[in-house]
Deep mutational scan, measured.
Amino acid sequence: EVPFKVVAQFPYKSDYEDDLNFEKDQEIIVTSVEDAEWYFGEYQDSNGDVIEGIFPKSFVAVQG
């Protein structure tokens, strides 16, 4: 069931425009499960802007 919160276990950096880049310990709200390997989610950056994109499930852990 979406949405749910995950926390980055590792930093994720990608050159693909659709990917969500983040640092370790970033909290991310997952709004869609793309497939067995990928989530789609969002978070607010330090400027208060909402950043969204896809990212690999293996880089995050589900909270709770």
Rank of each mutant, 00 (worst) to 15 (best):
Q44D: 03
L20H: 01
N21F: 11
T31F: 05
A8T: 03
E42T: 12
L20E: 02
E34V: 15
D35N: 14
E42Y: 15
I29R: 07
V2S: 05
E34G: 09
D35V: 05
F4C: 06
E23C: 09
Y16D: 12
D45Y: 04
D18Y: 15
N21S: 10
D15V: 10
E17I: 13
S46F: 10
G48Y: 02
F55P: 06
I51A: 07
V60Q: 02
D19C: 14
E34Y: 15
W38Y: 13
V60I: 05
F40R: 15
Q44I: 14
S58M: 08
K13A: 07
D45E: 06
Y12V: 03
E1P: 11
V7D: 01
K57F: 08
Y43N: 02
Y39P: 00
V62L: 14
K24D: 02
K13M: 10
D49I: 13
Q9W: 07
P3W: 07
P56H: 07
G48N: 05
Q26S: 02
G48A: 03
W38I: 05
E23T: 07
A36L: 10
Y39G: 00
I54K: 15
E52W: 10
G53A: 02
E1R: 12
P3H: 05
A8Y: 03
S58N: 11
V30A: 02
I29A: 03
T31H: 06
V33T: 06
V30E: 00
E52C: 15
F40N: 04
L20T: 01
A36Q: 11
D19R: 15
F10I: 10
E37V: 08
F55K: 00
E17P: 15
S58I: 10
G53C: 05
N47D: 06
V7E: 02
E23M: 07
D15H: 10
F22H: 02
E42W: 15
G53V: 03
W38R: 10
E42R: 13
D25M: 07
D25W: 11
K57G: 07
S14P: 01
N47M: 09
I29W: 14
Y12T: 03
S58Y: 10
G41C: 05
A8K: 00
G48S: 03
K57N: 09
K24Y: 04
F55N: 02
D49A: 11
P3F: 05
F10G: 06
V50C: 13
Q63L: 15
D18Q: 14
F10P: 00
A36W: 08
E27W: 08
E27M: 09
Y39M: 03
F10R: 14
V2D: 04
F59I: 09
D19A: 15
D18S: 14
E17G: 10
K24Q: 08
W38H: 14
K24M: 07
E27C: 10
Q9R: 12
V50T: 13
A8I: 03
E27A: 06
V2G: 04
D25N: 11
V60G: 02
V33Q: 07
E52A: 15
D35K: 08
P56G: 03
I51Q: 13
F22D: 02
N21P: 07
F4S: 01
W38M: 09
K13Y: 14
D18C: 15
Q9N: 08
F22W: 02
F40I: 06
V2L: 10
P11W: 05
T31W: 09
Q26R: 03
K13C: 12
F59T: 09
Q63F: 12
S14Q: 02
E27L: 13
F4K: 02
S58T: 08
E27P: 05
G53L: 04
I54P: 06
G64Q: 13
F10Y: 12
P11R: 08
E52F: 14
E1L: 12
Q63D: 09
F55V: 00
Q63V: 15
Q44W: 07
W38F: 11
Y39C: 05
D25V: 01
Y39F: 09
D15F: 10
P3N: 05
